[in-house]
Simulated assay, not measured.
Amino acid sequence: MGPPIEIKSWTKILQYWAKGDPQARETTKRLMRHRLNGYTAVTDAPCSQLVPELLEIYPDAKVICNVRDPEAWAKSLAQIWSLALMWFLRGVLLPLPSMRHFPSYISLLSVQWRNLYGQNSEDHGVNTYKRLG
């Protein structure tokens, strides 16, 4: 909902992160450092899945891990994904300067989640929450 550079920069970060090689990892961290310049905290995706990289960039950072009801978390996740992956989303969001980039961002976010949590999208609910908790 902010300026387009916000979502575009996170999309670029996720593109490098997905490559997984050492050079791309260094580029990911460099881009994250640049994107987060001036911020004092981050929350939610994609940063919640980039904790190792964040701790390399900011070794003195505090990490706060909250606990949610697994069923409520899974329901929330399912609602977000069902809305985010609607086939007509690109057309609906096209007139909105920042949000027109959301489908590309969410697509890369799903790559990040599959890499971290497993290929089976059915498992990205209660089972994933319990396995990682």
Rank of each mutant, 00 (worst) to 15 (best):
residue 2 G to K: 05
residue 4 P to Q: 14
residue 5 I to A: 15
residue 6 E to H: 15
residue 8 K to P: 04
residue 9 S to V: 12
residue 9 S to W: 09
residue 10 W to T: 15
residue 12 K to L: 10
residue 13 I to R: 01
residue 13 I to T: 00
residue 18 A to W: 10
residue 18 A to P: 11
residue 21 D to K: 13
residue 26 E to R: 08
residue 28 T to A: 01
residue 29 K to G: 02
residue 29 K to H: 08
residue 30 R to N: 10
residue 31 L to I: 08
residue 35 R to D: 13
residue 38 G to F: 12
residue 38 G to W: 07
residue 39 Y to G: 02
residue 41 A to R: 00
residue 42 V to M: 00
residue 43 T to I: 12
residue 44 D to F: 12
residue 45 A to H: 10
residue 46 P to M: 15
residue 47 C to L: 05
residue 47 C to G: 04
residue 49 Q to H: 08
residue 51 V to M: 05
residue 52 P to R: 09
residue 54 L to K: 03
residue 54 L to E: 03
residue 54 L to V: 13
residue 56 E to Y: 00
residue 58 Y to Q: 05
residue 60 D to L: 13
residue 60 D to V: 03
residue 60 D to G: 11
residue 61 A to C: 07
residue 62 K to D: 12
residue 62 K to L: 06
residue 63 V to M: 04
residue 64 I to N: 06
residue 64 I to H: 04
residue 66 N to R: 15
residue 69 D to Q: 09
residue 70 P to C: 10
residue 71 E to D: 06
residue 72 A to T: 10
residue 72 A to Q: 08
residue 73 W to S: 11
residue 73 W to T: 01
residue 74 A to E: 02
residue 74 A to I: 02
residue 76 S to Q: 10
residue 78 A to Q: 13
residue 79 Q to A: 11
residue 80 I to V: 14
residue 80 I to M: 06
residue 81 W to A: 00
residue 82 S to C: 00
residue 82 S to P: 04
residue 82 S to T: 05
residue 83 L to K: 08
residue 83 L to S: 15
residue 84 A to R: 11
residue 86 M to K: 15
residue 89 L to A: 08
residue 90 R to W: 07
residue 93 L to P: 03
residue 94 L to W: 15
residue 96 L to C: 10
residue 97 P to Q: 06
residue 98 S to M: 03
residue 100 R to T: 03
residue 101 H to I: 12
residue 102 F to A: 14
residue 102 F to N: 00
residue 109 L to F: 13
residue 110 S to T: 12
residue 110 S to L: 13
residue 110 S to D: 13
residue 116 L to C: 06
residue 117 Y to C: 07
residue 118 G to L: 01
residue 118 G to N: 05
residue 119 Q to S: 14
residue 119 Q to G: 12
residue 120 N to T: 00
residue 120 N to C: 10
residue 121 S to T: 07
residue 121 S to C: 05
residue 122 E to A: 11
residue 122 E to I: 07
residue 124 H to I: 02
residue 124 H to G: 01
residue 127 N to W: 09
residue 127 N to E: 14
residue 132 L to G: 03
